[in-house]
Amino acid sequence: MNSIIKPLLGLKAGTEANQVNDRLKYSPDVFEFFTNENDFTPEGLKRLEYDIQWVKADATSKIILHHPMRYRNEFTELVAPENVFPELRKFIYQSTENLLQFAFDYNIQVLVHGSYARHTQFFIDMYPNLEDARQSVFKQLDRLAKLGQEHIMFENSISPIFYYGDKHEEDDILERGYRLAFDTSHCFIKCKGDNRLLQKSLMHLKSQVVHYHLVDSMGKKHDSLTLGQGKIDWRKILPLLNSKATSIYEINLSNQEDAKEQVESHEYLSSIYSDGCK
């Protein structure tokens, strides 16, 4: 079946040498670094740059830098009001600029979350209403899109802000021309475990998706399961992926120094691909 693209081996790791070493032994097609606030000290930035050079030399030039999820135990939420959280906002923008500098220097990509979920409502409640909060986030994403150009992408959440699974929300996102990262589990959870809605979202956004987080889920909470262990219908998902996009398996690992669950997910999806091509 020509409509089915061969799955890429996309692996994710922190910047620790043991994690990078483990991933590189599989010769991944795509490598995503999950950064944290310690990577943005002078020493941390030097280590991250070394790791980028290392992965480029040993494995692949398809590298994504995932913006840090937390700063001083708070989520790096764009919706957090600057007048209440000035240090958080400062870190969000400074760290994004640091990553984009690497992205332009090494021709790689930066991934930023449009929103998260756990503390999002706490921040939304600081606005007069949800729509004001949404527009604040869109305004900042517009700014970051202009700053990052062809080196930045935005990932969907399971919060009331910047999510996939609803045509009207997706239309607003598409209208702004963002380069998109599509997390299958986030969308599936937002769709309350409805595979049909997940498939519609994949088709609707396909032209602007540049990167996928392939993750299984039971569709009820953020569980980040190995592919084949949840309720996502991967046989129907595989033909809907943008063939020009990269992808990684963003799976919960039992040991951060062993990509076992990521590799098992790739084997599962590859078996579906092989069956579909017979």
Rank of each mutant, 00 (worst) to 15 (best):
H151K: 15
M153H: 12
M153S: 15
F154M: 13
N156M: 10
N156E: 13
S157E: 06
S157Y: 11
S157G: 04
I158E: 11
S159L: 04
S159K: 02
S159R: 04
P160G: 02
I161T: 07
F162Q: 01
G165N: 09
D166L: 10
K167F: 12
E169T: 07
E170G: 10
D171H: 13
I173P: 00
I173A: 03
L174M: 14
R179M: 08
L180I: 11
A181F: 06
F182H: 00
F182C: 00
T184L: 07
H186W: 12
C187E: 10
F188L: 02
F188P: 00
G193D: 04
D194G: 04
R196K: 14
L197D: 08
L197R: 12
L198K: 06
L198S: 01
S201T: 02
L202C: 10
L202R: 14
M203V: 14
L205S: 08
K206C: 02
S207K: 04
Q208D: 08
V209A: 06
V209F: 01
H211M: 04
H211D: 03
L214P: 01
V215G: 03
D216A: 09
S217N: 13
G219A: 11
K220A: 05
K220M: 12
K221L: 15
K221I: 12
K221H: 15
H222D: 15
D223L: 01
L227W: 05
Q229L: 12
Q229H: 14
G230D: 08
G230A: 03
K231R: 10
K231V: 02
K231S: 09
D233G: 00
R235V: 00
K236S: 12
K236L: 13
L238A: 04
P239I: 05
P239F: 05
P239C: 01
L240C: 12
L240D: 08
S243M: 10
S243T: 09
S243Q: 14
K244D: 15
A245F: 07
A245K: 12
T246F: 06
S247W: 15
S247Q: 15
I248K: 11
I248A: 12
Y249T: 14
E250I: 00
E250M: 01
E250Y: 01
N252F: 14
S254Y: 04
N255Y: 09
N255F: 11
Q256F: 15
D258L: 02
K260N: 12
E261K: 02
E261S: 09
Q262S: 04
Q262N: 08
V263P: 03
E264A: 06
S265R: 03
S265A: 12
E267F: 09
E267K: 14
L269H: 10
